[in-house]
Simulated scan of single mutants.
Amino acid sequence: MSEITPELVRHLGELARIRLDDDEVTRLTGQLDAIVDNIAKVSQVATPDVVATSHPIPLENVFRPDTVGEVLTTAQALQNAPDAAGDRFRVTAILGEEQ
């Protein structure tokens, strides 16, 4: 028995303020019904004795050595800045501060 009906899809569209034509309602009815069916299948398999996991394979952080590479000079970093003050970028004030 299908839980998702065209009327339900139309109602959900109205709640979301999305205008749906008849073709979209038909397509979404089938897609949403398939999603609900798949969630029901997963719910049947998910039992309390199955441990929840976020990853099937244990994760391990891999770090590279932190070495200094080539860096830009201050002049190079500021050469294309729309506005600079001394050796800093100048930006518009935020959070209610005066400009």
Results as ranks from 00 to 15, higher is better:
residue 78 L to G: 03
residue 42 V to R: 09
residue 61 N to A: 09
residue 60 E to F: 03
residue 84 A to L: 05
residue 81 A to C: 08
residue 70 E to L: 08
residue 39 I to A: 09
residue 33 D to M: 00
residue 84 A to E: 14
residue 36 V to N: 06
residue 32 L to T: 01
residue 86 G to A: 13
residue 79 Q to H: 06
residue 27 R to L: 07
residue 54 S to M: 10
residue 84 A to P: 00
residue 76 Q to V: 01
residue 45 V to N: 02
residue 44 Q to A: 15
residue 56 P to G: 06
residue 47 T to P: 00
residue 49 D to C: 01
residue 48 P to D: 15
residue 71 V to C: 06
residue 80 N to R: 13
residue 33 D to F: 00
residue 32 L to C: 04
residue 71 V to P: 00
residue 48 P to K: 13
residue 68 V to E: 14
residue 42 V to M: 07
residue 38 N to S: 12
residue 61 N to D: 12
residue 37 D to P: 00
residue 42 V to D: 06
residue 62 V to K: 08
residue 66 D to Y: 06
residue 59 L to Y: 01
residue 72 L to Q: 11
residue 77 A to G: 02
residue 47 T to K: 14
residue 76 Q to I: 02
residue 35 I to E: 13
residue 60 E to Y: 02
residue 49 D to P: 00
residue 74 T to L: 09
residue 34 A to W: 02
residue 71 V to N: 09
residue 51 V to K: 14
residue 65 P to F: 07
residue 35 I to T: 07
residue 43 S to W: 03
residue 29 T to F: 04
residue 38 N to H: 12
residue 40 A to Y: 07
residue 67 T to I: 10
residue 48 P to H: 07
residue 44 Q to T: 10
residue 85 A to G: 10
residue 79 Q to L: 03
residue 70 E to K: 13
residue 39 I to V: 12
residue 30 G to H: 08
residue 55 H to N: 12
residue 40 A to C: 04
residue 61 N to I: 01
residue 62 V to E: 07
residue 35 I to F: 14
residue 37 D to C: 03
residue 69 G to N: 03
residue 38 N to G: 13
residue 59 L to E: 03
residue 52 A to G: 03
residue 56 P to A: 08
residue 54 S to T: 11
residue 57 I to R: 03
residue 27 R to I: 02
residue 34 A to E: 14
residue 49 D to T: 04
residue 62 V to G: 02
residue 73 T to S: 15
residue 43 S to A: 14
residue 35 I to N: 04
residue 28 L to Q: 06
residue 28 L to E: 02
residue 50 V to M: 14
residue 64 R to W: 07
residue 70 E to C: 00
residue 74 T to V: 15
residue 34 A to S: 10
residue 28 L to T: 01
